[in-house]
């Protein structure tokens, strides 16, 4: 399991890995003709992470406006919860300075959209987010909290 949060560093690779191994690997459309990366929330998040990784930037102003709105696939909450938990592990808890264009926030928004069809206004704090998530989707909140407590690395 990656550390819950360290202010000094962010492991975007772990985030990309969680998306790939927890969600894409379990997707019925993986390597199938029906796979449409341009319409897929997870493919979008993975591409954004692939874009920023070599650049060493965390924030792309305006990127949150590019999240696709045409992904109608059904996602498994347990799979998404694992990746969602990874976004929280990587979150730097910027509080007032939270930016929706931060690639970690972008990934989390994609996962929320994929699962619930709506975004949760992120308060810049993992604890406050979990409280907010619990109000809106208690089951998902419990899954994410369990992942944070006992989560495994994507390859496990």
């Amino acid at each position: 399991m990656t550390p819950t949060r360290k202010a000094v560093d962010v492991n975007l690779g772990a985030l990309a890995e969680a998306l790939e191994k927890k969600i894409c690997a379990a997707c019925d459309y993986l390597d199938a003709a029906e796979c449409r990366p341009e319409r897929c929330m997870v493919a979008f998040a993975r591409k954004v992470l692939a874009f920023v990784l070599p650049k060493g930037v965390l924030d792309v102003p305006g990127a949150s406006q590019l999240i696709p709105a045409t992904d109608f696939k059904v996602y498994v909450p347990e799979d998404v919860a694992a990746a969602l938990a990874e976004t929280l592990r990587q979150c730097r808890e910027c509080r007032d300075n939270h930016s929706p264009d931060c690639v970690i926030a972008l990934t989390r928004a994609c996962l929320e959209n994929a699962l619930t069809g709506r975004r949760i206004d992120y308060p810049g704090s993992v604890f406050l987010y979990l409280a907010r998530l619990r109000e809106q989707d208690p089951r998902l909140a419990e899954l994410v909290a369990r992942e944070l407590r006992h989560g495994t690395r994507p390859e496990d």
Binding site: E38, K47, F51, V57, V60, G62, A63, L66
Partner: peptide, 13 residues
């Protein structure tokens, strides 16, 4: 727009 955003758009197609 931000040149990095333009670059991202191109990367995403």
């Amino acid at each position: 727009p931000d040149p990095v955003l333009l670059e991202l758009k191109a990367f995403l197609g």
